[in-house]
Design a protein around this nucleic acid. Structure first.
Length: 143
DNA sequence: CGTGAGCGT
């Protein structure tokens, strides 16, 4: 009597559960590297951090040096705002991560203009977005 | 200048 009712309810829930799972199967590929190695040598993005550059290198030379590995989407050199001279490091964004990975493994440790290159994956410029934590009622005078 | 490890006008 009562048992039948319970079984029916359970069956219905099970069916709904299965349908729900079949409908929604999305996960984040970058944060779900369970079987893969969680090393920094992965390729989370196609932007590369180029270090070890000479202080006289410009974006054109860097792009020319990396454009042979694939389609270069963007090249940027970190310049000093106060003086205008390069800081000796820049960024290269490739159209595909595979190209960036190849370029990294191909030019990392090589010498450009007499200095060894240091290449690694670039950290994004924005690190958290417009997340602002205001003071919850206490502005000043809580010290 | 001797600048040199790092992550951006």
């Amino acid at each position: 009597m009562m048992r039948n009712g319970v079984e029916l309810l359970v069956k219905r829930v099970s069916a709904i559960s299965q349908r729900s799972v079949s409908s929604s199967f999305q996960v984040l590929p970058q944060f779900c590297t369970s079987s893969s190695s969680s090393s920094s040598s992965e390729s989370p993005s196609s932007k590369l951090f180029i270090g070890g550059l000479s202080w006289s290198v410009d974006e054109q030379s860097l792009k020319d040096a990396f454009s042979s590995f694939g389609e270069v989407a963007e090249v940027r050199i970190a310049y000093d705002k106060g003086s205008g001279r390069s800081r000796g490091f820049g960024f290269v964004d490739f159209a595909e991560k595979d190209n960036a990975l190849s370029a990294k493994h191909a030019m990392d440790g090589k010498g450009l203009l007499g200095r060894p290159l240091r290449i690694s994956f670039a950290l994004e410029r924005v690190r958290g977005g417009p997340v602002v934590v205001p003071r919850f009622g206490k502005s000043k005078r809580d010290r």
